[in-house]
């Protein structure tokens, strides 16, 4: 469990990082928190010839809230995002979800942008980016571009980020006033990759649901948002019909997802589980102001 030899690059600026990436191309990998990359290197599942370590790059650890979005820099750690009161006030879903990312030690080191760039179907933050209709900001020697989440995720562990590009930040879009969110997942052990997980946003105006969406962890290949408007919109959130509407939403989710079987759970079980989790987060989202904070 020792990595194959590699060249370690330690750029000090985004420009330097982009220059190194342009030079090493597909032989390079960006090292940020290293919580996924380092085990992969140690198990020799990947042997990149160059590691571009961005931990020394200035100005990438920001968490900035604007009217439209919460912008998270490439070196902001999960723990920093979870702690940020500004981010929480603007978009409670970020804390709700981030606290489900592995364990404190991993959250202290791992980065939110790195998790999104890793594009693991079991990752929480790609699902959150999707639910928030987020954007990835990428920089290369060729220039800067923004990639909408729909265009970013190309497959499990695969993105449209080019080999010479560095994801410098992501922007999570804020929800309209009156929106409640909740996030819940179920793992075999606390903090493990979830067997299934779901985040929801429900917008309520005058007691009536006007919009609702869900996105998922571990049950879709790539982040995928299901519009629950058709089954929930127009329902009074605390009425008796809410229960039936929530059941319909759970059924819609079960139809929507495409979970795979592995040694921890079958596809059928995960499908049932994500439906039930959806039911629970929807109930929770309208009853609790903050949703699940685990």
């Amino acid at each position: 469990m020792k990595p194959a030899p590699f060249v370690h690059h330690a750029p000090r600026t985004v420009g330097e990082a982009a220059a190194v990436l342009a030079q090493v191309g597909h032989d390079g990998k960006v090292l940020a928190g290293g919580q996924s990359l380092v085990p992969i290197l140690n198990m020799r599942l990947a042997s990149p010839a160059h590691l571009v370590d961005i931990n020394g790059v200035e100005g990438l650890d920001g968490i900035d809230v604007s009217d439209e979005a919460v912008r998270v820099g490439a070196l902001a750690r999960h723990a920093a995002l979870a702690r940020s009161e500004d981010a929480y006030a603007a978009l409670p879903l970020l804390r709700q979800a981030t606290l489900n990312v592995a364990h404190p030690a991993i959250r202290n080191r791992g980065t939110t942008v790195g998790s999104i760039a890793h594009a693991d179907p079991a990752g929480e933050m790609p699902a959150v980016l999707a639910l928030c209709d987020g954007v990835v900001e990428a920089v290369s020697a060729r220039g800067r571009r923004e990639i909408g989440w729909q265009d970013f995720f190309a497959g499990p562990l695969e993105t449209t980020l080019q080999a010479d590009e560095l994801a410098v930040a992501v922007r999570f879009g804020r929800f309209p006033t009156g929106t409640r969110t909740a996030f819940r997942e179920s793992a075999r052990r606390h903090g493990d990759y979830a067997l299934a997980g779901v985040g929801v946003m429900v917008t309520v105006a005058d007691g009536v649901v006007t919009a609702a969406r869900a996105s998922f962890v571990s049950v879709t290949d790539v982040p995928s948002v299901l519009d629950l408007g058709p089954v929930l919109a127009g329902t009074e959130a605390s009425s008796e019909s809410w229960g039936a509407a929530v059941d319909s939403a759970a059924a819609a989710v079960r139809d929507h997802v495409q979970p795979e079987s592995d040694i921890h759970a079958t596809s059928d079980y995960r499908r049932m589980l994500v439906g039930e989790l959806t039911r629970r987060v929807l109930v929770e989202s309208v009853t609790a102001a903050e949703g699940d904070r685990r």
Binding site: R188, R189, G191, D192, I263
Partner: peptide, 15 residues
Amino acid sequence: LNASFMDFLVPYASE
């Protein structure tokens, strides 16, 4: 198939 502590589930303190 589960020759690691990621997939061989030793209970954590939380379990």
